[in-house]
Design a protein around this nucleic acid. Structure first.
Lengths: 128, 128
DNA sequence: CAGGAGATTGATAATGATTGTCAAAACATG
DNA sequence: CATGTTTTGACAATCATTATCAATCTCCTG
C-alpha cells in the first residue's frame, strides 16, 4: 500500500528549497533556510518530507563524515568543493571525469541509481 | 614531536576486537563485545581509540544508513567505498583515475598537500 | 455548503550515538 | 619514591533525528 500523497504548502516549500541549490543540504540547513525566507515550516515536517521524498527515490540521501544526513534533488549536474584547510576558502570544481568514473565503477559492480560525494582538501597558494 | 602513542591494555583490546572480524563494526558493538569477553574498557575509551586509529588511517570509517559510524581494520592503502543504500553492503573500489583527477584539479588552483574523500552510494543488484 | 474521515502539521519530548569533562589511576623518568 | 604527563572511565552534555499527539487542514460526499 503506497502512501497517499497530498500536496501541501509546506512540502512544496521544502522541495523548492531543495531545488534552489545543487549541493547536498542537511535537513537542519533547509529548515533554517526556510525560516529565513519567511516560510513557516516545522522541523519535524522538513524531516518527514525529506524522508518521504528519499523513500520514493525523488532525492538522494547520503551521510557526511559527521553523520549528518544530506539531501539533493536527483540527477542534476553538480560540482565538488576544493577546500583550503588553513583559511577555509572553497573553490567549486567540476568535470565529467569523476562522474564517469563513479558511474563506471558502480555499474561494474551491479549498482544502479548512483550518487556520490567528493571533497578535496588541501592548502591553497596564499596559505602555503 | 612524534606521535605520542602509548600502548595500553584498553587500546590493544579495542584493536584486537576490531581485528577479530572483517566486517564493519560500530563502536557500540565493539564495546558490548569487549564487555562480554571480560575486558573492562570504558565506552569513551572505545570511541577515543577508534577515532585516533581512524585519524591515523589505520582503520576505515563510514556511516550506515542510520548514521551510525562503523569501523574496520584497513585492508589496503587508499580506496573508496561503494555503498548500497538499501542493505548497506559495501564494496571497496580503487583506481588511479580519481586520484589523478583530484591532484590535477587541485594543482590547477594552486592547492598543495591534497587529500580527498569520495563515497559512492547506489542500489546494489540484489536490492534493485 | 456542511460534516466528517483521514491526512498533515508542529511544538515538544524522547531517543540514541557521539563527544566533552575532569578527577582518579597508570606510566615513565629522574 | 617523587613528579609531571598521559590515559581512563563514569557521567553529563550535545546534537541530529524520531516519536507523540492534539490541533488543523483537505478532500469527499450528501
Amino acid at each position: 500500500m503506497t502512501t497517499t500523497r497530498r500536496p501541501t504548502r509546506q512540502q512544496s516549500a521544502v522541495i523548492d528549497a531543495l531545488g534552489s541549490t545543487q549541493d547536498f543540504t542537511s535537513a537542519q540547513d533547509l529548515h533554517a533556510q526556510l525560516r529565513e525566507s519567511g516560510e513557516k515550516v516545522g522541523l519535524a515536517t522538513v524531516y518527514r518530507t525529506l524522508s518521504t521524498l528519499a523513500d520514493s527515490g525523488d532525492v538522494d540521501v547520503l551521510r557526511t563524515g559527521e553523520g549528518e544526513a544530506v539531501y539533493r534533488k536527483c540527477s542534476t549536474g553538480h560540482h565538488h568543493h576544493l577546500l583550503c584547510r588553513v583559511c577555509g576558502r572553497t573553490v567549486e570544481v567540476e568535470g565529467p571525469t569523476v562522474e564517469r568514473w563513479t558511474d563506471a565503477v558502480a555499474a561494474e559492480h551491479g549498482f544502479t541509481d548512483v550518487a556520490h560525494t567528493l571533497e578535496i582538501v588541501g592548502t591553497c597558494s596564499s596559505c602555503h
